[in-house]
């Protein structure tokens, strides 16, 4: 939708330009400042941008990790060049490189870093959020179907950056219970 709108605006501007370059009739007819500047320069972008801003705010608000029933809490700690994951429902459990979550339930990932700045990004589940030393950022993710989802670091963090990835493994109800009980999934 964003792309489509942007393409339309781009084409509109290009057509105006092309017409300006091709016109060979009497120049200097002062259609003037009102049309060009007040109409196209002010009113047009203000309208489009107001709509866009409203959309962004509403969607952004919906993505917030509000407390709710059935939210699973896990922790993710980035380091050069590895990820450690911990689980509130299974204290003491720590996995490296693979984050286990239940499918179909909202999961809050508490993200932090042990050394430099990293970023936690699972493109198919949510946007990215940075892992910053000393800070804990909470990202809400939810996987609808069980399976493996690829995740990567997405803030440059040194020579090992390219291969600094991880997997999010979403389990069905039974497998999740098994995992929490400490059996190898």
């Amino acid at each position: 939708m964003l792309l489509g709108g942007a393409t339309l605006i781009f084409l509109f501007v290009m057509v105006l330009l092309a017409l300006a370059m091709r016109r060979r009739d009497a120049p200097g007819q002062a259609s003037g400042e009102r049309v060009w500047i007040v109409g196209l320069g002010l009113a047009f972008p203000l309208t489009v941008l107001a709509a866009l801003l409203a959309y962004g705010l509403v969607v952004g608000e919906r993505l917030l990790p509000r407390p709710g029933p059935g939210v699973v809490d896990v922790g993710a700690e980035g380091r050069q060049w590895d990820w450690h994951f911990t689980y509130a429902d299974a204290p003491g459990r720590m996995t490296e490189g693979v984050l286990h979550i239940p499918a179909g339930r909202p999961v809050d990932v508490a993200i932090t870093s042990a050394d430099v700045i990293h970023s936690f990004w699972v493109p198919r589940l949510a946007g990215k959020l940075d892992a910053i030393p000393g800070h804990v950022n909470v990202l809400r993710i939810e996987a609808w179907v069980p399976g493996d989802y690829a995740g990567v670091s997405s803030e440059y963090n040194g020579p090992g950056y390219t291969g600094h990835d991880f997997t999010v493994r979403a389990h069905d109800e039974a497998a999740w219970a098994d995992f929490l009980a400490g059996e190898a999934p």
Partner: peptide, 8 residues
């Protein structure tokens, strides 16, 4: 763009 329309 308006300037272009205004001139030649």
């Amino acid at each position: 763009i308006g300037t272009l329309w205004k001139g030649r």
